[in-house]
Nucleic acid binder design. Structure first.
Lengths: 114, 114
DNA sequence: TCCCTTACGATACTTTAGGTAAGTAATGAT
DNA sequence: ATCATTACTTACCTAAAGTATCGTAAGGGA
């Protein structure tokens, strides 16, 4: 059994899934693997996400210790998000998902370069 | 760009996420990696899932060509689910998620063996 | 004859995720 | 004096997902 913040998991895959388990968090992690990003940069990268949802997802990821939030005392505000060490270790997971996705599309869809 | 059934994806990770992106499908895949399973076996493995939801998730996975459904003409009914070749290729993805989950719990939670 | 079994389908209800749209604070630029 | 900017917050609404419960087919066993 695995415990994280009083939550119980039978399998470590469920622990991981609790972080992935929505439409947006993986996208946030994906773009933060490129670079540290400001709030606005992320909302441009993931242009279909609403500000409200992005705010919520960033807060959840911070609580789970996947990302770090740094506030700069400037006007207009500047807040920079980056991956924590454990967050950065998600890269191989994303990589496998990336590669599986390509294989899947080759068999079940099509790829259009451009 | 990636296209699967008229749906457009910017990145192959999104393709993969479209399969993972709910509470249950990954669990189904996880248990089918052990063995081919009957409906009832799966609903016992994933004991928190309702029958209706399991039915829906199995149908979705079948439509996406991740699992195969075999009906046996017996009474009481017998239906066996198994992974397709592309479904079985999800194993490395699950493996990375499994290992990341363990690392994460080591840092942020605790593991109780038993 | 009645109950048991499996794999669902139908129905009704509740929960939750996420969207839109508006507002806010603080300051520098015009 | 007003506007633009950034990173949010708040209120409201809808659609999707999930739950619980009942019904059903079809044959075998007591």
């Amino acid at each position: 059994m695995y415990y994280v913040n009083d939550k119980e998991y039978e399998c470590s895959v469920s622990v991981t899934m609790d972080i992935f388990n929505d439409r947006w968090k993986l996208a946030v992690i994906w773009y933060l693997l490129e670079n540290d990003k400001r709030f606005k940069e992320l909302s441009e990268d993931i242009n279909a996400i609403s500000q409200k949802t992005l705010t919520i997802k960033l807060k959840e990821l911070e609580e789970k210790n996947i990302i770090k939030r740094e506030v700069f005392a400037e006007v207009p505000p500047k807040v920079v998000y980056s991956l924590t060490p454990i967050g950065r270790k998600l890269k191989p997971v994303l990589k496998e998902m990336f590669e599986w996705g390509i294989q899947y599309v080759k068999e079940n869809g099509k790829i259009d370069n451009k």
